[in-house]
């Protein structure tokens, strides 16, 4: 028998510290596998943010830079502007990206920075034990919306994917989830498409992952998946909000012609 699935070389092998059933682990695996499958593990620099995934710089086996809370897109800008032929991505949670880092993400997208942003939306601040995040749903109880998020008092959730898709600099924006195998396979396709959009030099690529937070939602992992499907999907519809027309074949063609030009130059 041959191995059809094993741990990817794209991860360092350091065991994840994430809670049982936390979908961070799935997204880590898919990004890491994608780097290996696309032959870019050696030419990628990732930027870790601050939150549950602060430690991702020890998990991803590519070069990793740990950024201050909310600033990963700016750090990635500083890296990519210098390493134009390398791949750069950020890995951020919803507190990091949609709250303190809101200016950085909007301007990185507006500038069309040729980076990939992988955005984990689990509707709470995980690491600091379940505070309300900009993506917390109306009515959702958190440690800082103990009576359920009330719009008149705490405003409305932010749909980041839709928000960024309005920026011309954003070339590809998609929202995916990991609630079942079909969605997981689709999520990995989105990751690879984001990397290809970057490699083709088309601009800012963004994938939002609707994720679970069993611990802070106070739900078992499988129940958390159900809650996500029942509560989060209505607020955060899945799908491609920008660059849906770009096919992988087209992207590969652009990348090939770019490489040909570089060889000529």
């Amino acid at each position: 028998m041959a191995i059809v699935f094993e741990k990817t070389e794209g991860l360092t092998g350091k065991p994840f510290h994430y809670c049982p059933g936390c979908t961070h682990g799935i997204v880590h695996r898919m990004i890491a596998e994608s780097m290996v499958e696309m032959g870019i593990l050696g030419s990628t620099v990732g930027v870790a943010s601050v939150g549950c995934s602060y430690n991702s710089y020890e998990y991803f086996n590519c070069d990793m830079v740990q950024a201050a809370h909310g600033r990963a897109p700016a750090v990635a800008t500083g890296i990519k502007r210098n390493l134009k032929d390398k791949m750069v991505f950020t890995y951020q949670g919803d507190g990091d990206l949609a709250s303190i880092g809101c200016a950085e993400i909007i301007h990185a997208a507006a500038r069309g920075e040729k980076i990939c942003v992988f955005f984990i939306n689990n509707a709470v601040y995980g690491m600091t034990s379940g505070q309300m995040a900009p993506t917390t749903l109306l009515g959702q109880v958190t440690t800082t919306s103990p009576f359920g998020r009330d719009a008149s008092y705490q405003g409305y959730p932010i749909n980041v994917a839709e928000l960024l898709s309005n920026l011309t600099g954003a070339a590809y924006v998609e929202r995916v989830t990991m609630t079942d195998t079909k969605n997981i396979v689709n999520a990995k396709k989105a990751i690879q498409k984001a990397f290809k959009v970057q490699e083709a030099g088309l601009g800012f690529a963004f994938v939002e992952f609707l994720s679970t937070c069993p611990t802070n939602w106070g739900k078992a992992p499988l129940d958390a998946m159900e809650w996500l499907k029942e509560k989060m999907l209505p607020q955060y519809p899945l799908g491609c909000f920008k660059g849906g027309d770009l096919t992988v074949a087209q992207l590969d063609e652009i990348i090939a012609s770019k490489k040909a030009e570089e060889v000529k130059a």
């Binding site: 191995i3 094993e6 990817t8 994840f16 682990g25 079942d180 195998t181």
Partner: peptide
Amino acid sequence: QCALTCPDCVITVER
């Protein structure tokens, strides 16, 4: 499918 959904890279599959 089990390996795809595992968040901790526990499972290896052979066929």
